[in-house]
């Protein structure tokens, strides 16, 4: 009897702690969470993204000065780093990834915030855009990379690179010096000149430089920029995309 009671109490405690652990990592998106997120935002994010989330914080201008990209406008602006189709809002995990990893060359990684704090600030950031109150966007299926890249695959990747028109912006050798870039034709949706990624330098991959991150960037595009989504037009031709991913990765050396 006593043992049973102890076991029961122990079990319920375990369940409780388990439950509270789950809540601690990703808190429910409610007023209290957003309030905590606001406090974090005002210290960590406001200086670039501005008090209203318009991307016009007091330090926001200097990053690219007269050019782009400027800090993200959270109210209606397009989100670059998504796993969702073009024109859609990101899912929470996309925002979490960007907050954690930062954006190479532009935004520092905020892995110094605890997981819970990151979720709290994401809840607050989402409150700037009414669209997040609607149905959650469906992420594209992002498969795991197939086996190791083959020489033939990388050769095919080069062919795909040309077929997909990558060289128009990223240049024939991937230096980010394509004709459209050199002619200054590439603008973001605000009309600011922006430069395409240098595919020979992994620090230039703003959405991450893993094979999967590059695959995601190609399939979803970077909204707000000229980089289009390839998911629909090439639908079903997954092998070509992976070959392209491995070709792109072959242009840069792995460091660290």
């Amino acid at each position: 009897m006593r043992i049973h009671a102890l076991v029961a109490i122990g079990a319920s405690l375990l369940m409780l702690s388990g439950a509270s652990f789950v809540h601690a990592v990703k808190p429910e998106d409610n007023q209290a969470t957003r309030e905590k997120g606001k406090q974090i935002y005002e210290h960590a994010c406001l200086l670039c993204h501005g008090v209203d989330g318009r991307g016009d914080g007091p330090a926001g201008w200097f990053l690219s000065r007269y050019e782009g990209p400027r800090p993200r406008d959270f109210r209606g602006g397009s989100y670059k780093f998504r796993s969702t189709p073009s024109g859609e809002l990101p899912i929470d995990q996309d925002l979490f990834r960007t907050v954690t990893q930062g954006i190479s060359g532009h935004m520092p990684p905020y892995s110094g915030l605890s997981e819970e704090e990151r979720w709290q600030v994401i809840a607050y950031i989402k409150s700037f855009n009414q669209g997040f109150k609607g149905p959650v966007s469906i992420a594209l299926l992002l498969p795991n990379p197939p086996g190791p890249p083959s020489a033939a695959g990388i050769d095919n990747g080069r062919t795909v690179y040309i077929k997909y028109g990558c060289q128009n912006c990223h240049g024939d050798n991937g230096y980010g010096d394509g004709k459209e870039a050199l002619d200054g034709n590439l603008k973001d949706t605000y009309g600011h000149t922006i430069s395409p990624g240098d595919l020979t330098e992994r620090a230039s991959f703003k959405g991450g430089s893993s094979a999967q991150a590059i695959y995601r960037g190609i399939m979803t595009g970077l909204d707000g920029t000229p980089m289009p989504s390839y998911a629909d037009t090439i639908g079903g031709n997954d092998k070509d995309v992976w070959d392209l991913v491995y070709y792109i990765l072959s242009l840069s050396q792995e460091r660290q």
Binding site: H43, L47, C48, G57, P58, A59, F62, L63, S64, R65, G102, S104, G105, H106, M107, P108, P109, A203
Partner: peptide, 22 residues
């Protein structure tokens, strides 16, 4: 260290912007 740009923190190096100041 943060894999970012000088201009995150500076208006014009070595002058700090609001973020660099904090």
């Amino acid at each position: 260290k943060y894999n970012t740009n000088c201009m995150d923190c500076h208006t014009a190096p070595p002058i700090l912007n609001a973020f660099g100041q904090r």
